[in-house]
Design a binder for these strands. Structure first.
Lengths: 348, 348
DNA sequence: TTGAAAGCGCTAACAG
DNA sequence: CTGTTAGCGCTTTCAA
């Protein structure tokens, strides 16, 4: 049934070692020998047992990527990019999701969920610094996203404050002054959407516009329905924003849905800017202006960081190993939700 | 550094086997003994080496799910469901994507991409029957989606013809008669969207409406941009449909975007029905009516099918093993793209 | 250049 | 109830 190196060796009348050499493209093998062994391999349909190889070499060729939710297209798109980059390094990706729950994130970070992996890329939401302290000799870890931890792990995130400022600035330049902020879920342990909210405050301040904290609304989660609920709450409270900056595209899309339902025009009555540049944002009745993080760069940096930790076992404690702040770029994409259908600013 | 069973055994002054028994919750162990061993485990921070266990047991605890594209929310949502179901069986999911390319699908089906797995769930697009014939003793395989193969593998798909007929019938009942069909990418090897197109033809015929083949448009792919392009092509050709049935939600969303751009009202001018019920379809300016396959059931059946093939090694050739047609349910979800804002049918 | 033998860490027989 | 031993399939010294 299952053919092993031994079977091939017997068939070819050589030793196991020789077959292994052929399989692994070891340089010093006689062409004749190689041919003979290859023949036996083909005849028997031999396929190496990766598990055994991994046991021997101590590596599995698998890295895990854990994100809050695959249903969020931002993470789905990012996952696709990570899979592609990993494939270039001959690595396969094991995907896991945490629902943004601290318990799940802890489990993942300690390797209890995704096992048998050489490295881990984690995008946490609720995880705390202390949760990571207890990590012992688990595989290399790279952190993604807004949260920062003062621990010796590489961290990859765009400059969230700068990005938020750019978005708000765009709205200000368009003449908007009553700019609401729709945030993500309220965390149990920390202020959600922290950096983006800071950016909102800072840019308003710099521009000389008073930040109205009543225009800040948090949601139950980070999905479209949460954006819709938050927007409804804002309007029901009697607020009349002339612009909305949302924590992410999904919240922006949910918010716009409520505006449509209530007969509010986008951008004439309310301009909207999102965050993430998911594909979906280009195809609504009103396409969405948004901050576009460089997802390709994020994926590349994440995978390369893991690969680096994998390679440099010797210099495990060397300087700069696994405690870098990696900052991919972003850009503001201006679409109809701020510029209007014509492509030029629209104001009533 | 790395602590193994042996280290723990020495520390606790017992044999390796005893430690193994404790680790695996083997029933017949003295509480005292168990406590002593557990202490040693904790002191040393022992964690079992899964790779070694897998080599020994011949199983890895990992199944692979390969879909065309994670960027398509239907597959992302399905993947999330599969991950959850697999977790209930103590299995982890390795996700891969094929871009719907035949080469990639072949590689995946033969285990060259996702390696070290106990089973495989594959959602093929271009794969041909012959490509699967050469599979030797690769891990159990389950096929998902519209394509059918006359091979001894379980196949899971909703009744696509019935679903398509339901969608078309809904439009007919609303009084629409010029119903266009927007298909998926034209395959190199087979008619795309085959079953759904058959359903479209069949329902029109049964209803006594002549099927106008000029109202059938295929796209370059299965994304929003492809739907937009197809819709533009249809309109530019001078066709004036009063309804559109799209191969999937993304194509429907892309098509609607073009309608909005051209000032056509949905559903007054053109009613639209999609397929998949991705979350996104509920949140557009005009929410999308669609066919909702039971994703939970699909995920459950897929994982259970793999588990079954894994368990019944003895009855590997037994009747019914791995050649069943599993058919989860679906339902028509009526939203604004056919009923209009008021929730009741709208016609100009 | 190729062969023999050891061992990665674990589990499964089989004794005791 | 616990210990001893063999071996999963592979790579890797060390010899030849």
């Amino acid at each position: 049934m299952k053919v092993s190196l031994k079977d091939v060796a017997e068939r070819a009348g050589v030793s196991i070692k020789t077959v292994s050499n052929v399989v692994n493209d070891y340089p010093h093998v006689t062409p004749a020998m190689r041919a003979r062994v290859q023949l036996a391999i083909d005849e028997l349909g031999y396929r190496p047992n990766l598990t055994a190889r991994h046991l021997r070499k101590g590596r599995t060729g698998i890295i895990a990527l854990a994100v809050p939710e695959l249903g969020n297209p931002y993470f789905a798109e990012l996952a696709g990019a990570v899979i592609d980059v990993a494939a270039q390094h001959d690595y396969t990706v094991l995907l896991d999701h945490t629902r943004g729950e601290r318990e799940q994130e802890i489990l993942v970070s300690q390797g209890f969920r995704a096992r048998v992996i050489d490295g881990l890329i984690l995008s946490p939401l609720e995880l705390e610094t202390e949760d990571l302290r207890s990590r012992t000799d688990d595989p290399p870890l790279v952190l993604l996203g807004e949260r920062r931890y003062d621990l010796p792990y590489d961290h990859i995130a765009i400059d969230n404050i700068a990005a938020a400022r750019t978005a708000v600035r765009h709205l200000l330049d368009l003449g908007r002054r009553r700019i609401a902020f729709l945030g993500s879920r309220e965390g149990r342990t920390h202020e959600p959407a922290h950096l983006r909210l800071l950016g909102w405050r800072a840019e308003l301040a710099d521009y000389g516009v008073a930040a109205d904290e009543d225009m800040v609304v948090f949601a139950q989660g980070w999905g479209r329905e949460d954006g819709a609920a938050a927007m409804a709450r804002l309007l029901d409270a009697g607020q009349r924003p002339d612009a909305v900056f949302a924590y992410n595209d999904l919240i922006a899309i949910g918010a716009m849905r409520v505006m449509f339902e209530r007969g509010l025009r986008v951008p004439e009555d309310i301009a909207v800017v999102g965050f993430d540049d998911v594909t979906e944002s280009r195809f609504g009745a009103v396409s969405l202006s948004t901050i576009a993080p460089d997802k390709q760069a994020i994926a590349r940096l994440a995978v390369e960081s893991v690969m680096a930790s994998l390679g440099g076992d010797a210099a495990a404690d060397g300087p700069g190993r696994g405690s870098r702040e990696l900052q991919p770029g972003f850009e503001l994409v201006q679409r109809e939700s701020t510029l209007g259908r014509g492509g030029t600013p629209v104001r009533d």
